[in-house]
Structure formats: C-alpha cells, structure tokens
Amino acid sequence: MTRTYLPGILAMAAIVVASNILVQFLFGQWLTWGAFTYPLAFLVTDVMNRVYGKDAARRVVLVGFVVGLVCSLIGTQIMGEFGPLVTLRIAIGSGVAFLVAQLVDVAIFSALRDGTWWRAPLASTLVSSTLDTLLFFSISFSGVLSFLHPATDVSWAAEMLPLLGSGPLAPLWVSLAVADWSVKLGIALIALIPFRIITAQLLTRS
C-alpha cells in the first residue's frame, strides 16, 4: 500500500463500516438505510481503477473485504431481540457478494476503460451490482441454500407475499432483493457525476 491509495482505502473502509451499521435501520418496508450507502463502494473502486489502475482498485477491494469480515464477526457477537445481529449465513453472503462483485467490477472496468468515459463505470457497476444482489440475498435467505447453516432460521424470508406489495407472489426475500437492486441501479446512474468530477481532479493533480 502507498500513501497515494490511502484516501481510497479510508473511503472504502468508511462505507463498509457505515453500511454495516445502517443496515440495522429500516427505510420503509423493503429497504434499510445501508442500501443507500453500500453502492458507493462501487464508486470508490471505479475511481481507484480509473486514476491508479486495476491493481490499486483490487487492493482497496481487499481492504473493504477485510473490514467487512471484521464487522460481520462483531455483529455475530451482538445479540438483538431475535438473536445475533449478523447470522453466519448473512456473514457468508455479505463477504462472498462483496468480494466477487467488486472483483468483477474491476475486471469489467479494466476491459472497457479505453472507451467513452462513462461506459466503463456504468457497465461495470450495473453488472457487479446485479451480481452482488443475487449472491447476497440468495446465500443469506434462500431456502435452497439452508444447508450452509441449518441452525439459521430464515423461514420468515420465505413467506409468500406480493412482489414489492403489488406484484405476483414471491418469497419476501425476493422483494427485498428487487428493492435493493433498484436502489443500486439508481445510484449507479447518479454516481457518474461524482465519478467524472473526482477522477478529473485526481488525474489533473497527477
């Protein structure tokens, strides 16, 4: 690690910590406040990739992964009203989803980096955000993967309800995933503005 990467490292760590805290607080019926901070991790990764290259981006991702593991470990030790704040399945889902999605983001961005300025960050974030949502919610709540930790009760997530309150019947966790994915897509579009501004300033300085 070098001092050059320190702002990116600190930003990623702050986002991961904040998201792990804010995920405990509901926003409406389908979301938590963490859904609005977590997608910023993709912005940090893309900025690092654009300015310093894919190796720097991967280093920042690994730091975020380690910080996330520590947060999950702490969460498993804190007891809430219905048990640990973080179950083993959620810890596994969170770690796998973050690492895989972020590394895919780095790979896609690197492949498209020579095109129009917005194409690499938008395409990489859209694909990796979708992958992140699929991995996290399926690993954490799908009944098909209950063998990961049979002691974790996720029966509540399998309750059949109208999708997002008005669509076809689907397990509750699918509505949670769709809502989370929608926020990620929206932030991916909005994040193009700070991406353009931040990268322009950093590239000018360098």
Rank of each mutant, 00 (worst) to 15 (best):
V96T: 04
L69H: 04
G68S: 01
L62M: 13
T32V: 11
L122F: 14
G115T: 06
S142E: 02
R196P: 01
S94W: 12
G83L: 14
V16W: 15
V51R: 10
V174M: 15
L122D: 09
S128T: 10
Y38H: 04
V127E: 01
R59L: 14
K184F: 11
F147T: 05
G34T: 00
F25G: 00
S175P: 02
L131I: 15
G28E: 07
T152P: 04
I92F: 09
A97W: 09
D132Q: 10
T87L: 09
E159I: 10
V106E: 09
R89V: 10
L131A: 11
S129G: 15
I74G: 03
I92H: 03
A41K: 11
I198Y: 00
S175Q: 07
W33I: 05
P171I: 02
L103V: 01
A56Q: 13
Q201L: 13
G93Q: 08
G64K: 03
S146Q: 15
L85W: 14
P168I: 12
G34C: 00
D114H: 06
S140A: 15
M48V: 15
W118V: 02
F65W: 11
P84V: 07
D180W: 05
V178Q: 00
G28W: 05
D55I: 00
F25K: 02
L85N: 14
N20S: 12
F36S: 09
D132M: 09
R58T: 13
T199R: 13
L185K: 09
G95I: 00
A56E: 13
S138R: 04
R50N: 08
F82A: 14
W156K: 03
S146Y: 03
E159A: 11
T204K: 14
A13M: 08
C71H: 01
V47E: 00
S110V: 07
Q24M: 11
A14H: 03
A91K: 02
G167P: 02
T152L: 07
F65H: 07
V174F: 13
L10W: 05
T199L: 06
Q201D: 09
T125V: 08
S140Q: 04
A101G: 05
L189D: 03
G68F: 01
V183L: 01
G34K: 03
G28L: 02
I139Q: 07
T199N: 09
L88W: 15
P7G: 11
T133M: 12
P39D: 14
R119H: 04
S72A: 14
T199V: 12
V106T: 05
T130W: 14
I9N: 01
A11D: 06
I92C: 06
L203I: 11
Q77D: 04
P194R: 03
L99R: 05
L134S: 03
K184P: 08
V60W: 06
V154E: 12
